[in-house]
Design a protein around this nucleic acid. Structure first.
Length: 909
DNA sequence: GCAAGGTC
């Protein structure tokens, strides 16, 4: 056709390509052919856009076409310091399983003059649109690119969108680019860090093979875990409190009314008894109020994904993940509408009657559908609006009648039934009830009773998952008096809140904006897959030891990395990008800078994570990589094999080395002095060693094992430039050689009492005390006196601080080579004395550094107001002993301890 | 082996 242009149209999913093609072509002259991907067909038809004849080619992608990843040299876990992942280069690429879609787009784009994007009209859709643009433009630079904006797959809407094409929105896409990059960098850095830090140090029994265990961190999965842990702590810290309440009943010819005390309950037994005795002394009841009112119980809003998941969990105990799988099946087979939607209100253009009409033949709910369509019943009501609209999909509703298909599982049947009944309920009148509330006065105390009569069931007839109880009470009139049939003082005990159910968890996530309707169930499943949480048969979640330890560790650092605030802040920034208030680069720079600082700080405080893990798990003796060393942080790229990284490692005896992570293929190793107590890779880079970067290591030496004149704290480099480190290796030997000589770990302290009741201290790896009491964590004042003993003619020196016999050693420094000195073997003492100074009492001790001491727990904890693991109760309530003895005798009206409530002057005011 | 987001 002369003047006809070819237009390539691309939708986000095959179903939309099919629907839009059908609507635009009105199924006239619609042809379909295969693309390179088996799922993404190509539809062809003729159409006219604003008078321009077009040959339309309509195909689709399947969600995102591209992935974001680090460049290859950063992808191996040991290839770099996880802290580097905040600035490591990333690239966007089409993964292997999407290459066939990419080829289809390239082939079709070459033949076309226009590209029209029909991706979903949300931020992710806009980003996918730009992915499609990138692929198509690469093969055809002069493509005219237009965007179709539509909010429902309805004929009029689609025609309107086609005739009113707009430009794609770069801001929307930028917001997603920023989100992707932030998620990747945060997720990968924290995941690598905590996995490498913890996995091999503890026996994590939840996993069958904990060598492959990944302790992932993600900005969505961790807050989800946080919800579970927080509720669990709330339950654990609950202390039951006994309370008292007064119940009253009245039986007449018409039936029984149960009156509830309008004070609810009291925690103070004395007060309750006083009030009760007053009532018993004057038990005559006077009716003070009789109120009749009509009550409506409304049907639910149209069904969104989250509501579907919550209701399937509540009604059928189906997991959200399984619900989505079944819903996807039903959608693919055409029985229900698109199942991933936030929308909970129907467009006024939706033909709701037509949907009901389809269901008229069903043996169970067909007659209800008929009643709905009969105007005389008055049952129809236009559905309410839940106030959410994702502008892309309608609420979930039935799209095809079925009385049950062959091959459907019970769950398919149940879910289809739920979707249909929910839809029918939405377009129904609310249930109507008549409620009566009666209030009485006994000795000045008020009690109330209520009864309900169901007048019209309406939607409840079809929505059998909900009920509305009816209860009858006798007729009362104001002023009527009677004597109660019973008046009792009853006791009860407060109970903790229940563990979070799956529906609760979804609500928490929804409220805090964690995940999307399409991903929330994934985050919940991830908690189970990662062994962070378990779900009981009642769909209630508890954290595992692992999950609780991780949250506890970060919590003890004082970070809210496990709370939803981080995600909320990110979402806020993304919103700013999407409306053009901030640029993508600006948000990326700020957010990543903050997160990197947080990451580095968390790594400095890693002892908190280790401590929290030690609460739940045994220390592991496992060797890593066959070299008996526990892998740690990356120091530099291996200069031997050029492939892997040189990693700081520590063995069971506490000796350090820097070895190639490619061991045993690459055996490059630098053995470090045996006198190292602690070593940690820092983010500081050596300015002189090449090839760089070489990260500096913060060493802490055991003072007694290094000669005088050397500082116990040393920021060193293993790249070859560090003379101090080289001297100490020469003087003290390396950990490997010391071990070979059969030297026991020098951390053994003869003056620290050992007890089998303790585990191994996190700080010093010793038994006999907990990490809280670890002497290595506290500085002490020291004197500089020593005691010299003589035994068997041999001089012996005792430490001035702990009285432990000192060890005679030989210095090997340039200035003091061969000079003998005594030093205390205890790591908590830094005492040493030159042998030739023994007689003049020149013993010295060098003050320990306190730089590495972590901040006080208590100050942080107090400031955060956490629902504590330590237990808490309201300050204004009073405990009553198990025998019921009151512990408070203040007036409950005014609080005055000088009188009881029955004589309180303020009573009745 | 890491995230979260699309989707088959």
């Amino acid at each position: 056709m002369s003047g006809t242009i070819k237009v390539l149209n691309v939708a986000e999913k095959p179903s939309v390509a099919k629907s839009v093609s059908g609507l635009l072509s009105r199924n006239q002259g619609l042809r379909v052919r295969e693309g390179r991907s088996r799922y993404n067909k190509i539809f062809e038809f003729n159409y006219s856009i604003r008078g321009q004849p077009c040959q339309m080619l309509f195909t689709s992608v399947t969600g995102h076409l591209m992935e974001l990843e680090f460049e290859d040299r950063f992808r191996k876990w040991h290839s770099c310091d996880p802290g580097d992942l905040y600035h490591a280069p990333v690239r966007k690429f089409v993964p292997e399983d999407k290459l066939d879609i990419k080829r289809t787009l390239e082939e079709e784009a070459r033949r076309c003059q226009w590209l029209v994007l029909w991706l979903d009209c949300d931020r992710e859709g806009e980003n996918i649109a730009f992915e499609v643009i990138e692929v198509c433009r690469a093969v055809k630079r002069n493509l005219t690119i237009r965007r179709a904006r539509f909010s429902a797959l309805i004929e009029r809407e689609i025609h309107h969108a086609t005739q009113n094409l707009v430009d794609p929105n770069q801001w929307f896409s930028d917001a997603v680019d920023a989100r992707q990059e932030i998620d990747l960098r945060i997720g990968a850095s924290f995941t690598r860090f905590q996995t490498m830090l913890l996995r091999d140090k503890f026996v994590i029994d939840s996993a069958t093979d904990d060598r492959n265990l990944v302790l992932s961190y993600g900005p969505c999965q961790f807050p989800t875990l946080g919800f579970v842990v927080e509720r669990y702590w709330e339950v654990q810290s609950h202390e039951p409190e006994e309370f008292w309440t007064i119940n009253c009943s009245h039986k007449s010819d018409e039936g029984v009314a149960t009156f509830n005390w309008m004070r609810g309950h009291l925690f103070d037994y004395t007060c309750a008894v006083i009030v009760y005795e007053m009532c018993v002394q004057e038990p005559n009841a006077t009716v003070t109020k009789v109120q009749h009112q009509e009550k409506l119980k409304y049907p639910p809003y149209p069904l969104s994904t989250i509501e579907l998941e919550k209701r399937a969990s509540r009604y059928f105990r189906m997991s959200s993940e399984h619900t989505m799988k079944v819903a996807e099946d039903l959608y693919q087979a055409g029985f229900i509408s698109y199942p991933r939607t936030e929308t909970d209100s129907f467009s006024s253009r939706t033909d709701l009657h037509a949907i009901v009409q389809e269901q008229q033949e069903h043996p169970e709910w067909g007659s209800y559908a008929q009643r709905l369509l009969d105007p005389e019943t008055g049952l129809w009501r236009n559905p309410g609006s839940g106030g959410h609209d994702d502008k892309a999909h309608p609420p979930i509703h039935p799209t095809k009648f079925s009385a049950g298909e062959h091959g459907w599982s019970q769950d398919h049947r149940k879910l289809y039934e739920l979707v249909v009944r929910h839809f029918l309920a939405c377009v129904s009148q609310p249930a109507v009830g008549a409620e009566t509330i009666v209030e009485i006065d006994i000795a000045g105390e008020l009690f109330s009773a209520s009864g309900r009569m169901i007048l019209e069931r309406n939607y409840l007839d079809v929505y059998r998952y909900e009920s509305w109880g009816a209860s009858m009470i006798p007729t009362y009139t104001v002023g009527q008096q009677f004597t109660p049939t019973s008046l009792t003082l009853d006791t009860g005990v407060t109970r903790p809140p229940p563990l979070l159910s799956e529906a609760d968890l979804l609500s928490c996530m929804d409220k805090a904006g964690i995940g999307t309707d399409a991903t929330m169930h994934d985050h919940i499943k991830k908690l189970l897959d990662r062994f962070y949480a378990t779900k009981d048969s009642n769909t209630r979640f508890s954290p595992t030891n692992l999950g609780e330890a991780l949250v506890m560790g970060y919590d003890d650092m004082g970070y809210e990395l496990w709370k939803p605030n981080l995600r909320s802040m990110m979402e806020f920034d993304m919103k700013q990008v999407s409306v053009g208030n901030k640029s993508k680069d600006e948000v990326l720079a700020t957010c990543l800078q903050q997160m990197k600082a947080c990451f580095l700080d968390a790594r400095l405080n890693k002892v908190k994570l280790l401590e929290a893990m030690a609460v739940f798990f045994e220390r592991s003796n496992r060797a890593v990589g066959g070299d008996n060393y526990t892998a740690g942080e990356v120091v530099r790229q291996c200069n031997l094999c050029q492939e892997s990284s040189m990693v700081l490692k520590k063995n069971r005896e506490g000796n350090f080395m820097v070895g190639c992570s490619g061991f045993p293929q690459c055996r490059n190793a630098i053995w470090l002095p045996g006198s190292i107590l602690e070593a940690a890779v820092t983010s500081n880079i050596c300015t002189s060693c090449n090839p760089g970067p070489v990260n500096l290591i913060q060493f802490k030496f055991r003072q007694i094992e290094i000669p005088p004149g050397f500082n116990a704290n040393h920021l060193g480099c293993i790249g070859g430039c560090d003379d101090t480190l080289r001297q100490l290796i020469e003087i003290c030997g390396t950990g490997s050689r010391m071990s070979a000589r059969g030297r026991g770990p020098t951390t053994t302290s003869s003056n620290v009492p050992r007890s089998s009741n303790h585990g191994v201290c996190i700080h010093c790896q010793q038994t006999g005390h907990s990490s809280n009491d670890c002497p290595s964590q506290f500085s002490r004042s020291r004197n500089s006196r020593s005691r010299v003993n003589s035994q068997n003619g041999e001089p012996s020196v005792s430490c001035s601080t702990c009285d432990t016999p000192c060890v005679l050693r030989t210095a090997n420094t340039e200035n003091n080579r061969g000079r003998k000195f005594y030093s205390c073997p205890s790591q908590e003492c830094n005492f040493f004395i030159w042998e030739d100074d023994l007689n003049n009492g020149n013993g010295r001790s060098i003050p320990r550094s306190t730089a590495n001491r972590s901040a006080s727990n208590s100050s942080r904890r107090g400031g955060r107001g956490r629902v504590g693991r330590n237990g808490s109760r309201a300050a204004d309530t009073t405990f009553v002993s198990a025998t019921g003895d009151p512990v408070s005798n203040r007036c409950y009206v005014c609080g005055d301890p000088s009188h009881f409530a029955n004589v309180c002057p303020n009573r009745g005011m």
